[in-house]
Every structure is written in structure tokens, then in C-alpha cells.
């Protein structure tokens, strides 16, 4: 594949991934890679296996076949929380925030892999635990500023409107300071204005923190605008992969989205 335009090595490569649930084949023999520092979109019609793909990447599903290479090494069968520790964060299609906790606590939970004072220091609080808490609070406040959610810092997220919840969820994933950020339909259910905001945040994140991003999105306008490269899935198979313009012109992709006339 021609990758000259991108910044270099693959951060994540998937090799011949196959995943099935009983007789249902969710993914069949899929290979693609995500380069360091790019925005990679995964698109496809409903039920194409996009979310399954993300679940494989962050270890929630274990594929029956295939290899996942992350950051230059072959990844074993790790649990999701171990994979989070390696530097993969994600948001969910249906918001999966901690509803009883405040925005601040949600974001602080995002940094949990980076906190490690033991239970005795935490019980005492003064000293190590407080120091660690304040250090991370500072980082989190930076993200709160960045996402412009200062006003809802202490509001329980269950009370926030949908668009803000999506933003908080992005914040929680950002707080992890991951190498790879997976966004599962970050703009689903938003109006044009909110979508524009979200696009701006995604691009800013990409520029400011240099995070590699993989996103699933149905809004083709958005995908074509912000993605560096696009991979297209349909019925669990890869039917297209390349730069947005090439993918848009690809006959297979057009057929998958618009249907083929059988005459």
C-alpha cells in the first residue's frame, strides 16, 4: 500500500482477523493497519462489523483467527483493562458514561491507569494520594478547558443533555492520554452544529496531542473531510481501503452503500 504520505510506521496492524459468534461470521479475514498520527475511518452499512472491529482492537472480543500487532509487537490474549494500560482508549456508540459521577470524576476515571498510590496512602489521603490527585486534576482541567465543559464540571453526567454527554465521553477517552483513540460514532444523533463542534474537537485533538484516531462514522461528509484514510467493511468483509477520494470512487463501495441493480 502506498503510505508515503503518512508519518511512518503502523501503530496498529490487524492481520487476517476472523471473528464469529457461533454460526454468525462477524468478521472474515480482515487486514488493515493504522499508521502513527493518522485519522483512520472505518465505514460501512449497518451490521457490517465496524463495532465488532473496534471491540477486537480493544480486546473486548477475541478473534478466532488472526493477529493484532500494536506498537510494534504481537499482542497476546489480553483483558480489556490490560489493553487500556497499553494505550488504547475509546468512546462508545451508545454513551457509556458513569452516570452517577460528576463530569470531573468521569474524566478522572479516564486517568485511572496512570494512578497508582496504594490503599494505605489513599486511606490517609494527606501526602501521596492528595499529591497524585492534584497532579491528575491539573491534566484533567486542561481537557475540561479544551472541550469547553467548565460549567458542568461538578454536574452528575446523567443530568446532562445528549450532546454534552458525548463530549464528556470524548473527554474521558482523552484523559487516558492514549496512543490510539477509538471513536465509535462520535457524531451519531447530533445536529449540524454539534457535529461541527465535534469535528473541530477531533481535529484539534489530532493536531494538539498528535493522537492517532480510528473512528467509525456514518456521516460521509464528515468522514471524507477529516479522515486521512478510510477502510470500508460490508458483511464482515473488507471491500475497500485507501484515501477518501479513491474510496468514494470505488465501484464496490458504491454498490455496498447504494445497492446493485441486478439486470
Amino acid at each position: 500500500m502506498n503510505t508515503a504520505q503518512n508519518t511512518g510506521d503502523a501503530l496498529l496492524s490487524l492481520k487476517n482477523i476472523s471473528l464469529s459468534f457461533g454460526g454468525v461470521k462477524a468478521l472474515t479475514d480482515i487486514s488493515f493497519d493504522i499508521l502513527k498520527g493518522e485519522i483512520r475511518a472505518i465505514i460501512g452499512p449497518n451490521g457490517a462489523g465496524k463495532s465488532s472491529m473496534l471491540n477486537v482492537i480493544n480486546g473486548f472480543y477475541h478473534p478466532q483467527q488472526g493477529e493484532v500487532w500494536f506498537n510494534g509487537s504481537l499482542r497476546g490474549p489480553l483483558k480489556p483493562h490490560e489493553i487500556a494500560r497499553q494505550g488504547i482508549a475509546r468512546t462508545f456508540q451508545n454513551i457509556a458514561l458513569f452516570k452517577g459521577m460528576s463530569t470531573l470524576d468521569n474524566l478522572m476515571t479516564g486517568r485511572i491507569t496512570k494512578m497508582n498510590t496504594n490503599i494505605f496512602w489513599q486511606a490517609i489521603w494527606k501526602g501521596k494520594a492528595e499529591k497524585e490527585e492534584l497532579e491528575h486534576r491539573e491534566k484533567v482541567e486542561h481537557i475540561i478547558d479544551f472541550l469547553e465543559i467548565q460549567a458542568i464540571r461538578k454536574t452528575p453526567v446523567g443530568r446532562l443533555p445528549y450532546g454534552l454527554q458525548k463530549r464528556v465521553e470524548l473527554g474521558r477517552a482523552l484523559a487516558a492520554e492514549s496512543k490510539l483513540l477509538l471513536l465509535d460514532e462520535p457524531m451519531a444523533g447530533m445536529n449540524v452544529e454539534e457535529k461541527e463542534d465535534m469535528c473541530r474537537f477531533v481535529l484539534d485533538v489530532h493536531e494538539e496531542f498528535g493522537t492517532t484516531i480510528a473512528l467509525i462514522e456514518h456521516d460521509m461528509g464528515v468522514v471524507m473531510d477529516i479522515a486521512d484514510r478510510v477502510v470500508v467493511l460490508d458483511y464482515g468483509k473488507k471491500i475497500g481501503d485507501g484515501y477518501p477520494d479513491d474510496v468514494r470512487a470505488d465501484q464496490n463501495v458504491i454498490d455496498a452503500y447504494l445497492g446493485v441493480s441486478h439486470d
Binding site: H81, A84, R90, F98, K99, M101, T109
Partner: peptide, 18 residues
């Protein structure tokens, strides 16, 4: 926070690193 994360949404908690 790790307790409350498990209480509110255990799958998300695990994926976040709890």
C-alpha cells in the same frame, strides 16, 4: 472511582482500565 465506575457501567469501566 474504580468502584463507582464498576457500579455505573462495568463494561466501560473495564475498557477504560479498571
Amino acid at each position: 472511582r474504580s468502584w463507582m465506575a464498576i457500579r455505573d457501567m462495568d463494561i466501560a469501566a473495564e475498557i477504560i482500565g479498571v
